[in-house]
Lab assay of single mutants.
Amino acid sequence: NITAAIYDEIQQEMKRAKVSQALFAKVAANKSQGWLCELLRWKENPSPENRTLWENLCTIRRFLNLPQHERDVIY
């Protein structure tokens, strides 16, 4: 289940792992930094009809659900 909290989790994970938006986007969703920036802007007004947005957030959720040491190896 995806909630608005995922946006904060993304920010916290980037700080914790000391990774850039570009690197996080690449490893978590195989996307660009610009894409992640755009995604983070949706926090203010996520559209329930935007299926692509929710699919991408689900992809990021799966990455964030990995154990921390696995995420660190991927970075």
Rank of each mutant, 00 (worst) to 15 (best):
Q12D: 03
R51E: 11
L57K: 00
Q68L: 08
T59R: 14
N30G: 10
R16W: 05
I74N: 11
F24Y: 02
Q68R: 11
K31D: 12
Q33L: 08
S47W: 07
N45K: 11
V27H: 03
N50T: 13
R71G: 00
E13T: 02
S32N: 05
A17I: 03
F24Q: 00
Q11M: 14
W42P: 06
G34S: 11
V73Q: 06
W35V: 09
A5E: 12
A22F: 03
L23R: 14
Q11L: 06
V73H: 15
P67F: 03
D8Q: 06
K31L: 09
Q11S: 04
I2C: 15
S47F: 15
Q33V: 12
N45L: 12
T52V: 08
T59E: 14
L66E: 09
E55W: 10
F63C: 02
Q21F: 14
P46G: 07
T59C: 06
L53Q: 04
G34T: 12
L66Y: 11
L40W: 06
V27F: 12
E38K: 05
A29K: 02
K26H: 08
K15I: 06
L40Y: 09
N50F: 13
L57Q: 02
E55T: 12
F24A: 01
D8L: 12
L53F: 08
L57I: 04
Y7Q: 03
L40V: 09
I74T: 11
L36F: 11
P67K: 04
R62D: 12
V19E: 04
A28Q: 01
T52P: 08
I10G: 00
W35D: 15
N1I: 15
M14L: 08
I74P: 04
T59S: 13
E49V: 04
W54H: 03
E49K: 04
E70R: 11
K31W: 02
Q33H: 15
G34M: 14
R16F: 05
T3Y: 03
L66C: 07
E49D: 10
L39G: 02
K31E: 10
I74Y: 00
V19C: 06
L66Q: 14
W42H: 15
D8M: 14
Q11R: 12
R16E: 11
R16V: 09
M14V: 03
R62L: 05
Q12F: 04
T3A: 01
Y75S: 00
R61D: 15
A28H: 01
H69V: 07
A25R: 00
V73T: 04
E38N: 07
W54Q: 06
